[in-house]
Simulated scan of single mutants.
Amino acid sequence: MNVTKEIEMYKFLGLETGRLPAALFIVSAIAFGLPGNCLSLYILLFRMDRQSTYVIFVSFLAMFDVLTCAVHMPLELIDLVFPFSIPEWLCKCFRFNNSLLYMGSLATLLVIAVVRYRHIVHPLKQKLSHAKARQCCWAVFVLSILTAAPAFVLNGNHTATIGNSTATICYIADTAQKTIYPTVYLTFYGMFYCLSVVILCLTYVVIVKTIRKANIARRQMQRHVSTCLNTISQPLSTAINPKLEKMFSDTDTNQPKLNEKSIGGSGKSSKNGKTKVLLLITIIFILAYLPYVSIGVVLTLQRNFKSSLSTTQEAIYRVAIRFPLINHVANPVIYGFCDPNFKKHLKALFLNSK
């Protein structure tokens, strides 16, 4: 390698191409995401009720998050900082892993949305058993492998032009560049995302509307019961016999009292809390992957898109295509703040360790 080529490659890796912000972004995601997801997975698997379908699906989702932080993010950092040092087999594994985690996470969210829809909108229907929930997780995993397999085939050594020189990087392989298959696969990627977003949005809109109607009906029932209790408790009967008032006051005060809080119970709030957690996870996933999928569509339609970017635009581009990493960092935060049961076990874990 001559001196000129070394200088050009140094510039290619340096600040001139906006790689430093993206590298710092990945390192931060690993630093926050890996401990948080490992802790979340431990609590879900060993502290919470593993017979709950909610815990089964969220644990499965947390496994994808742990794999992303422990395997994919370090590979992403290597590809960013040392793009000329990646062997082809590692490049193929890296791209395959990326597609697998994307497909698996999105498919899991779809299954969760359908299960929550049945549970909330059609509560009288037979609920999904624990065995069926685990079977759904295995089906998602196998389907994710099948849909990610083309990424292993299509990606590999790609010859990139750097100034007056060329180098080999990890991208769509030269053998696949002039075929229609990369376009077809990326189109499938984008369509799967768009279709999933539509299904998720429609499903959760119906779920939220159903919960709101149930809450309104429950509040009306609580007010009605409260009014009835107040009417009954008025000492109207003392007008007939004053001794009756003392009789009522001498009754056993330890008897359970019917009040508005006892109407509806805590089951509804627990169900709504779980739905809130899953809804937030879904929203963050959609927003985090939106820039990634949009850029993928642009690159499919305009192959020379990156060559026209300025240094600042290049930095934004490199961060935007890695923006989905935020999704895997945010999930433990959502569990900790929005799931009361998870929060209870988290506090108990730290209190017992002292």
Rank of each mutant, 00 (worst) to 15 (best):
G296N: 13
C338D: 07
K246M: 08
I281T: 09
L80N: 11
E260S: 12
A149E: 09
V298A: 05
E16V: 04
I216T: 14
P35C: 08
K125V: 06
V55L: 01
L309V: 05
A22D: 12
I172P: 02
K343A: 15
T168W: 01
T282V: 02
F32W: 10
I316L: 09
Y117L: 11
N97I: 06
L280P: 01
V205N: 08
G104P: 04
F152G: 10
L200D: 03
A148Y: 08
I216S: 09
A320I: 03
V66Q: 12
S40E: 04
I180E: 14
H72I: 08
Y42L: 07
S40A: 15
V206G: 01
K276E: 04
V140I: 12
V277P: 11
M103V: 08
T147A: 04
D49I: 02
D79C: 08
C69S: 06
F192N: 02
F94I: 03
W89N: 11
C194A: 15
V293Y: 00
C338M: 14
V121P: 09
R218H: 08
N37R: 03
V27T: 11
T161L: 00
V27I: 15
V208A: 08
W89H: 12
I284V: 14
K268Y: 05
R318H: 13
T183G: 13
G264R: 02
T300N: 11
